[in-house]
Design a protein around this nucleic acid. Structure first.
Lengths: 181, 181
DNA sequence: CAGTCAGCCTAACACCGTTAGGCCGTCTTG
DNA sequence: CAAGACGGCCTAACGGTGTTAGGCTGACTG
């Protein structure tokens, strides 16, 4: 199963979530409205509510799928890597750059964890924790750095001439040599 | 002058921006609508457009004020400090915790720099750069870490039992001992 | 054959940012 | 002093948002 989150839905609900994902990826969060979404699958907006509780729940499904994809990507990146820290950081950045809209959706607001598929958040965090040798403190610090780099880049907050590859390298190096807990 | 941004506005426009700030601080970005804002100063929403170009511009004014406040806070914190890096990091966190809604407004989306008061963004960044001994690379890395810590905390992304004070301390230490460019 | 019910529909509500156009009082100008 | 301009407010409206209420239709079930 490509996604256990999608697998747990009725076929029509799965269709809706997949259409929402398409809309999000192609046009960003601003285009993800119930009316646009209905249009995309040939249904009026109110009818979507027969299959999906509300928009927040729909977004939570997208976020759950995002966590699943992160978990797979991070695990693949760190497996068989001699420098798991560097590998997972690169994978983190790659995920955000390839799915900027989904990454934003996943991070820009407080999580409604009660709406997420159980376990997906932890599953995405686990490979990162393992790459940090199980040190929670260092993992959180690295995560903060990585998220900050990614979201500031997505928001065009760095000067255009900034060499972000270099900033990443130096930042990661700082955490690699950080004294373990 | 407490704020050169506000000083550059007509009295009525200044009133509007200040009311918007109140609304934002008290009830968050969701409450910052033109109708709610008009209500607050005894005016219908459309009349606001006599004084303010549009909502984006109004938000840009709030962001400019935020940058001014950051500049003042960061400068005060680093002046006469023997550990400017630690001082500026603490000030950064303090600003975000005291003004969470404004901090979000300032960072969560791409900046419309053409709408900002000129120079305010640089003015806020300067004390941070100075605290890092003028090293742009390290400044960006520290900024990414600090922003990541702050926004993940505001979004309740860390486990409730996480000792964030400690994560801050260790992260800052990593950047303090980072090899200069 | 009758009844239930899934799955769609339209109409509507309350909100959003924003524009068009009108009214009124004050201030400037011939 | 009269007249026109204009600042500063208003209401009405448009197209958008998420969401609820209530109705229709067709298929499956007792």
């Amino acid at each position: 199963m490509a996604s256990s989150v999608l697998g747990g839905l009725t076929p029509r609900a799965r269709e809706i979530v997949q259409a929402a994902r398409g809309l999000l990826d192609e046009e960003g969060p601003g285009a993800l409205s119930m009316r646009r979404l209905g249009e995309r699958i040939g249904m009026r907006a109110p009818s979507l509510y027969e299959h999906v509780r509300d928009k927040r729940t729909l977004e939570a499904a997208l976020i759950s799928v995002g966590f699943e994809e992160q978990a797979a990507l991070f695990t693949r990146a760190t497996d068989r890597s001699e420098e798991p820290l560097i590998a997972v950081a690169a994978a983190y950045r790659e995920f955000a750059r390839r799915q900027p809209h989904l990454y934003r959706l996943m991070t820009e607001r407080p999580l409604h964890r009660e709406l997420l598929a159980p376990g997906v958040e932890d599953a995405a965090a686990l490979p990162v924790l393992l790459a940090m040798g199980g040190d929670l403190e260092r993992t959180r610090a690295l995560w903060a750095f990585a998220h900050g780099m990614v979201i500031l880049e997505l928001n065009h907050r760095f000067p255009p001439d900034a060499d972000l590859d270099d900033t990443w390298r130096k930042g990661i190096e700082a955490f690699r040599t950080m004294r373990p807990a």
